[in-house]
Simulated assay, not measured.
Amino acid sequence: MIRAAIVGGAGYIGGELLRLLLGHPEVEVVASTSARLAGRRVDGSHPNLRGLTDLVHSSPDALPDCDAVFFASSGLDDPAQRAALASRAKLVFDLSADLRLTDPALFAKHYGAHPTPDLLGTATRGLPEVDRAALRTANLVSVPGCMATAGILGLRPLVEFIDGPVTVDGRVGSSGSGASAGEMNLHAERANVLRVFAPLGHRHQAEISQATGLTVRMTATGVDAVRGVQVLCRTQVRAGVTETDIRKAYRAAYADEPFVRVVAQKRGNYRLPEPKILLGSNFCDVGFALDADTRELLVVGALDNLVKGGSGNAVQSLNIRMGWDERLGLGFPGLHPV
């Protein structure tokens, strides 16, 4: 049994980490920090956890020593505090964007200047399907973004087939903006809309490019849902590439993966990946459609942005690091209908 703590536990990602770790047979959650809600019960901000914990949010400065600490929010506003909190545990899992990119100039383009650029490139990416070997010995892990995860898992097995740039159309529910997103996420403003909030150059395109070596251009739209991510990745394939080639590539990459499924059927309501049936689960579904005449390829990826797109990847990475079954604490399959 290891002792784990969550920095920024009052937000949506923090709540999902608490839900997963409280049900994990090898983890004891000893702290959840929140500067805003210090002294208040965890189940006040996460009512789904009523009866599961008596934890009270503590001040970040009161974070105890533990075995693993999870950063559910950015620490760049106070790098000194971040370093102090990270020192409380041997294993650090960062679910923010702070360490996702390795190039300081690229980070500055998408997020602004990094106050401690020497940290960039020091973390192991927390994407188990790609980074499993490195995760077995990693003490600092950076979990990729939700739409980046769906895009990377959809595109990476097909890189050798792709001829030209990739255009990614990402769609995400309102929880992707976090628990304190402000006026634009009021129900009156968010309901019944398809809001293009990043028409060009969404920051996750840099993560997808970094992981695949492809030239990626990305837009993002907020959809009328609370949870869920779907990415549509449009590109061209090389001459002679067939549907069979693509299926074989996916099969080779994911046949033994517990949380990636290839969904590319000819008929049915769910013949391509759909986030609705993945809500609450750690699955990422990937699929495709190919026009053999024009060589146009559409890759589709879907997941729950708060689980496989965040907290679930972190817990799966922890399982790998500790030598446990990767599925521990992550067995929920999603709901249908919902």
Rank of each mutant, 00 (worst) to 15 (best):
G51D: 12
S209G: 03
A113V: 06
F283E: 10
A105P: 09
P128M: 04
Q81I: 09
V92C: 10
D94A: 04
L232F: 13
R41S: 07
G75V: 08
L37K: 09
S59T: 11
D94P: 09
Y111F: 14
N282Q: 10
A206L: 10
D78Y: 05
S59Y: 04
K276W: 13
A31G: 01
E257H: 15
G268H: 15
L95N: 00
F107T: 04
A89G: 12
L120E: 02
P117T: 11
I208C: 06
V69L: 03
A68Y: 01
A62K: 03
V29C: 13
T137M: 02
T116Y: 03
R36Q: 13
T124S: 01
A220Y: 07
T53V: 12
L279Y: 09
N305I: 10
P333R: 02
A38G: 08
Y254I: 08
H57N: 03
V300M: 06
D78F: 10
R19Q: 15
D291T: 00
R125C: 11
A5K: 05
V241M: 05
A4K: 00
R136Y: 15
G14I: 00
L135T: 07
T33M: 11
N305H: 07
N305P: 02
W324Y: 08
T242W: 04
G51F: 05
D77T: 11
A108I: 11
A191L: 10
T221S: 14
I162Y: 01
L306I: 09
E183V: 12
I13Y: 06
R171P: 08
H336Y: 13
L63D: 04
T167V: 12
A84M: 03
G51A: 05
D163G: 09
G287F: 01
Y254M: 02
F332T: 06
P104A: 03
R267K: 13
H204A: 14
T294I: 09
G121A: 07
A264I: 09
T33A: 11
R327V: 05
A138L: 00
P165F: 04
R41H: 04
H336K: 13
L158V: 06
G329W: 02
A80K: 10
L290Y: 14
A198F: 05
Y12E: 11
